[in-house]
């Protein structure tokens, strides 16, 4: 089958969606399909530019494809009679972020008109796709609420799962992923000052801005935690991240209201590690069940400190939790083979 994967791009910016599309292409090719990637540049400032981008996508033509798999707004507006939507992003600033007052679309008559056009273009596109899948329940709910549409849940699989193995269960808790305010690594550092055990914390990943990394470093210094908190800010090879996760005692991930299960928590479970998270972390809570596959507490340094001590002091319970997490994760059947089968069905 000849397949086009359609995504948009902000040139020189790479994130989870780019990683997803690259792995999707590789997996489709591994399953014997001929695949090409379309990358449409997207510029959402000023907001009025979005009209041109939507129209441009609707005027484009894809020739000679048996199937199109589209991931994001506005690239998913490119027409094709056999299009499957695997929705990573709508333009949230026209939906929930508009309601939350955190949209770049102004609350003016022109802004309201733009918002209406985006919603209408989306709804019109969604009605004509052959299949509508969403990567998380949150995205499904958003689609239902704002566009009145049902969709299938098709979660993003873990990439290169073979790199994440059940290692040595060392003496540290590992927190990977991008470093920024919404991922709340600072909350873990603050919690470490209240711990009574000798537990250690490793935080490693790229900082969104230099100030994000500096703030974390400053906290470690201020609380005198240098001997127990290891900060490694930067972009690390995947092998290194996998090694940290594979040899940790447990992992921690505390994002604010994340849509998906989170690569960090999926990688932890693949490596047979329980995950420490908090009650408002969103989609992670579909994977982390308190006292079964990890630890869920309030997003508060003292509550987190109690869990960190418990993870460290009740080592055999922690290891058992990790093994159970892996068992449940594998039973969910979220892998590339199943995903490709559903996308091309």
């Amino acid at each position: 089958m000849k397949i086009f994967v359609v995504n948009n791009m902000v040139p020189f910016v790479r994130g989870g969606a780019e990683e997803l599309s690259n792995h999707l292409i590789q997996q489709l090719r591994d399953h014997g399909h001929r695949v090409e990637l379309i990358r449409v540049p997207f510029k959402y400032e000023p907001p009025e530019q979005i009209y041109s981008e939507m129209l441009a996508c609707r005027m484009m033509q894809i020739e000679d494809a048996d199937l199109v798999i589209a991931l994001k707004f506005p690239a998913y507006l490119i027409p094709h009679p056999n299009k499957v939507l695997w929705l990573v992003h709508q333009y949230r600033q026209a939906y929930d972020m508009w309601e939350a007052g955190s949209s770049n679309i102004p609350s003016t008559p022109n802004g309201i008109e733009l918002k209406r056009c985006i919603t209408e273009a989306d709804s019109d596109c969604f009605k004509n796709v052959r299949r509508m899948c969403a990567i998380s329940p949150v995205i499904q709910q958003r689609l239902k609420r704002f566009n009145g549409l049902d969709s299938e849940l098709l979660r993003t699989p873990l990439n290169a799962p073979e790199q994440f193995v059940e290692g040595e269960y060392g003496d540290y808790i590992f927190c990977g992923g991008r470093i920024n305010q919404t991922k709340r690594q600072y909350l873990l550092v603050e919690a470490m000052r209240y711990t009574s055990s000798k537990c250690k914390l490793v935080i490693a990943g790229p900082a969104d801005s230099s100030s994000d990394g500096d703030k974390l470093q400053e906290l470690v210094q201020r609380y005198g935690l240098s001997d127990r908190v290891h900060l490694d800010v930067g972009f690390h090879p995947r092998e290194k991240i996998a090694s940290w996760a594979s040899n940790a005692l447990a992992c921690a991930y505390l994002p604010i209201d994340e849509d998906s299960l989170g690569y960090v928590s999926m990688e932890a479970n693949q490596a047979a590690k329980g995950v420490l998270t908090v009650t408002d972390s969103g989609g992670i809570l579909d994977l982390v069940f308190h006292d079964e596959t990890g630890w869920v507490c309030e997003p508060d340094p003292i509550a987190l400190a109690a869990q960190l001590d418990r993870i460290h002091e009740k080592r055999s319970e922690t290891i058992a939790m990790g093994k159970n997490a892996k068992k449940r994760w594998l039973a969910m059947g979220i892998n590339w083979a199943n995903t490709i089968e559903r996308l091309v069905a």
Partner: peptide, 25 residues
């Protein structure tokens, strides 16, 4: 970085597609 855009030489759509390329910023 690399951008890849779709294109079809089917005659009724050619001009609209050229316009679409001009509309991207």
């Amino acid at each position: 970085d690399v951008l890849v855009l779709p294109f079809s030489m089917e005659d009724p759509h050619v001009l609209a597609q050229l316009a679409s390329y001009r509309m991207l910023d």
